[in-house]
């Protein structure tokens, strides 16, 4: 019961933040120099159309009223039409969002695949050769631009070995997956290194705690101690970090999708900024921040379920 209460409480806490986010985005669109209606319709729009939109957006009314009109449009998903693609923004985004979330999913897969085993090995062998090597590699991974790594991967697997596509998304599910492999690895590296370091440090810390010594001296098998006493606790903070980084992956998709010419949300954002396609810009920014809020909520709830010590 307390879990449900907690979830409801967190949901209610999100609402004011969400409200402020909409205010910020609204302010952002008003801060762009020029007439908002003209900005929405583009430079070449007819004067009559601009005038009509001006009335619809309530530009002759006070700012507060204009904000409520904007909110109404957001809630009813009436986000306008893309200037560049000439289709409703909602439709455009729904076509593209699958790719971005799949990419984040593929990255997550690689992050876990790389960071969990390496972090475990490093933490269990503190200060030995394996630990030092892994530490140096993770340091290098954190310091590297992921888009550069992406280009290098593309150079090696795409241009040199001709194993994987140099960019693009293909049309069948298999081609989709192939297209996502390299960008997935490229954007996974930094987070994998961070999670690995986090896991290593938690394992080192937990390893020296009394209850672990006690478990060992009780005569429990080494495997049991490692699995039930150390890993379970070490994974807690790693999981939190992982879900926090999911939001980061969504933001990072902006660059990595451009590198690999993937038609996702990130590429859409960049293209729309260049084309001054502001209805799309505002919707994508809103969508991304909304996703971050939802992900943070899920993290908190997940954490509460995973760690029974947290009082709700």
């Amino acid at each position: 019961m307390s879990h449900i209460n907690y979830i409801v409480k967190r949901l209610l806490q999100i609402l004011p933040v969400l409200l402020c986010v909409t205010i910020l985005i609204f302010a952002m669109m008003r801060l762009i120099p020029g007439d908002p209606a003209r900005i929405q319709l583009g430079e070449n729009a007819r004067e009559a159309a601009v005038q009509a939109l001006r009335l619809k957006m309530g530009l002759d009314k006070p700012l507060v009223t204009q904000y409520f009109i904007f909110m109404k449009q957001l809630i009813t998903l009436d986000l306008g039409t893309s200037l560049l693609y000439k289709i409703p923004v909602v439709k455009l985004i729904s076509q593209r969002i699958g790719l971005t979330f799949s990419l984040a999913g593929v990255s997550m897969f690689f992050i876990i695949l790389i960071s969990f085993p390496l972090g475990y090995i490093a933490g269990m062998n503190k200060d030995k050769a394996a630990d030092q090597t892994i530490r140096v590699i993770s340091l290098a991974a954190i310091s590297m631009p992921s888009f550069w790594l992406g280009i290098l991967l593309m150079l090696f697997f795409g241009v040199h070995l001709r194993l994987l596509p140099v960019g693009g998304w293909g049309s069948t599910p298999l081609e989709h997956l192939k297209g996502l492999l390299l960008p997935g690895i490229a954007s996974a590296m930094v987070t994998a290194a961070l999670v690995m370091r986090n896991l290593r440090n938690s394992i080192v810390d937990i390893n020296s705690l009394d209850y672990v010594d006690f478990a060992r001296s009780k005569g429990l098998m080494d495997k049991t101690v490692k699995k039930n006493y150390i890993m379970r606790n070490a994974l807690l903070s790693a999981v939190t970090l992982l879900s926090m980084r999911f939001a980061w992956l969504l933001g990072g998709s902006v660059v990595i999708e451009t590198v690999f010419a993937l038609p996702g949300i990130g590429k859409l954002l960049v293209d729309s900024i260049f084309a001054r396609d502001y209805p799309v810009v505002q919707s994508v920014v809103f969508l991304l921040s909304f996703s971050v809020l939802v992900i943070n909520l899920i993290t908190d709830v997940l954490y509460a379920f995973l760690d029974p010590r947290i009082r709700l």
Partner: peptide
């Protein structure tokens, strides 16, 4: 904090 770092910079 609700905005991803890159997205906020881009905005």
């Amino acid at each position: 904090m609700a905005f991803p770092f890159t997205v906020l910079v881009i905005s």
